[in-house]
Computed example of a mutant assay.
Amino acid sequence: MIHKSGFVNIIGSPNAGKSTLMNSLIGEKISIITWKPQTTRHRILGIINEPDFQIIFSDTPGIIYPVYPMQKIMMQYVEKSLSDADIILLITEFGKLENFSIFNKIKKMNIPIIILINKIDKIGIEYKDNISFHNSMKYWIKLFPNSEILPISALKKTNQDLLMKKIISLLSEHPPYYPKEFLSNRPKRFFVNEIIREKIFFLYEKEIPYSVEIDTILFKKEKTFIYIFSYIYVERNSQKGILVGKGGSSLKKLKFFSIKSIESFLKKKVKLKIYVKVCKNWRYDYKKLKFFGY
C-alpha cells in the first residue's frame, strides 16, 4: 500500500482563522481560539493519521510587523514554517487585501500554495459584500497567479472536504514522520498552559491576556485524577491584582473554567492549583522568553 505524508503549514494575518481551520481539520481542539488578534504565540503541530496517509498541519502566529522581542520570535516561527513546508495554506478573509513582505518569499517557493479566502459565511445578500468577495478573488489571483484559490468557512466547514482532497492529492509518497498514535508534537503540559491562557483571553480585558504567560510546574497522574500546579506570570503588580480579583474572586472563576476545559481535553478529573507571580517585562527579555520556551 502506498503511504503519503507531508507538512501542511498554515500562515496568515492575526484573526484570519488559522487556528479555527486547523482544529476543524484535525477534529480536535489543538490551538486556542478567541476573537482577539495575536492569540497564537507558538508553532503548534496537529496530526491527521489514516492508514494510507499522515498530514502534519502547522498552526503559526499571525503575521505582524514585530515591535518587541516576543513578537520577533513569533515571526521567526512563521519564517521557519516556510523552510519545512510541503504545502502552504495561506489564509485570509474576504475583503482584506493584504501584502506582507513574507509573501515575496512564498512566491519563490517551489511547492504548492493554496490561498484560502475565509469567513465566506459572513457574506450577506448585500451588493457590497459580493463586490468585496469578487475583489478579493481578483486581488489574490493577481498576487499569486500560479496558486489555487479556494473560498472557505473554517467555522462552518464550508469546502473543507474539497480542501482535504486537494491536500491529499498533493502529498508525496513517504512513510509517517510521527508515530501513528500522535495527535501533536506538544506535551500535555503545553496544552494545559494554552487552555488556561485561552480562559484569560475570555475573562479579562485590555492588556492582561497579552501580558501573561503560563508555566505548569507539576503534572502528576493519580489513580482517579490528575494534579496540576501552574504559575501565571504577569509583568506588573497591578496586573496581578486584576487577575486575582477582590478576595480571589476572579482567580476562582478562571480556575473553574480552566478545570472544565482541561478535564474535557484530558478525559480525566483534574485538581488544579494556580498561583500568580510577577515577572517584570518578560516579553522584552530574551533570557526570560527562553525560560518560557520561546
Rank of each mutant, 00 (worst) to 15 (best):
1 M>F: 13
2 I>P: 15
8 V>I: 06
12 G>C: 05
13 S>M: 13
17 G>R: 00
17 G>E: 00
18 K>F: 00
29 K>N: 12
31 S>Q: 06
32 I>E: 03
35 W>T: 15
37 P>V: 10
38 Q>Y: 02
39 T>E: 00
45 L>S: 13
47 I>D: 04
54 Q>R: 10
58 S>K: 00
60 T>H: 01
61 P>K: 01
63 I>V: 15
64 I>L: 01
69 P>H: 01
75 M>D: 06
84 D>P: 06
85 A>E: 01
85 A>W: 06
85 A>M: 03
88 I>A: 08
88 I>L: 12
90 L>Y: 11
94 F>H: 13
97 L>A: 14
99 N>L: 11
100 F>S: 11
104 N>T: 14
105 K>I: 10
108 K>N: 15
110 N>C: 07
112 P>M: 02
114 I>V: 14
119 K>N: 09
119 K>R: 08
121 D>I: 08
126 E>H: 14
128 K>Y: 14
132 S>W: 10
135 N>K: 07
138 K>G: 09
140 W>K: 10
141 I>V: 11
142 K>M: 13
142 K>G: 03
145 P>L: 09
151 P>G: 12
152 I>S: 03
152 I>G: 01
154 A>I: 02
159 N>G: 08
161 D>Q: 15
164 M>A: 03
166 K>N: 11
167 I>G: 06
168 I>P: 03
170 L>G: 00
171 L>F: 07
172 S>I: 12
174 H>D: 13
174 H>F: 12
176 P>N: 08
180 K>C: 09
184 S>C: 12
195 I>D: 01
197 R>M: 00
199 K>F: 00
205 E>V: 06
206 K>V: 02
206 K>N: 07
211 S>C: 13
212 V>T: 09
213 E>A: 14
213 E>P: 05
214 I>D: 01
223 K>H: 14
223 K>G: 04
230 S>Q: 07
234 V>H: 03
234 V>D: 11
240 K>L: 08
240 K>T: 10
243 L>W: 00
245 G>K: 07
245 G>S: 10
246 K>V: 13
247 G>T: 05
253 K>W: 04
254 L>A: 06
263 E>A: 04
264 S>R: 14
265 F>H: 09
268 K>D: 12
269 K>C: 10
271 K>E: 15
273 K>P: 05
273 K>S: 15
274 I>E: 05
274 I>K: 02
278 V>F: 03
278 V>Y: 00
279 C>H: 08
279 C>V: 11
279 C>N: 14
281 N>L: 08
281 N>D: 15
281 N>V: 11
283 R>Q: 07
286 Y>T: 15
289 L>Y: 02
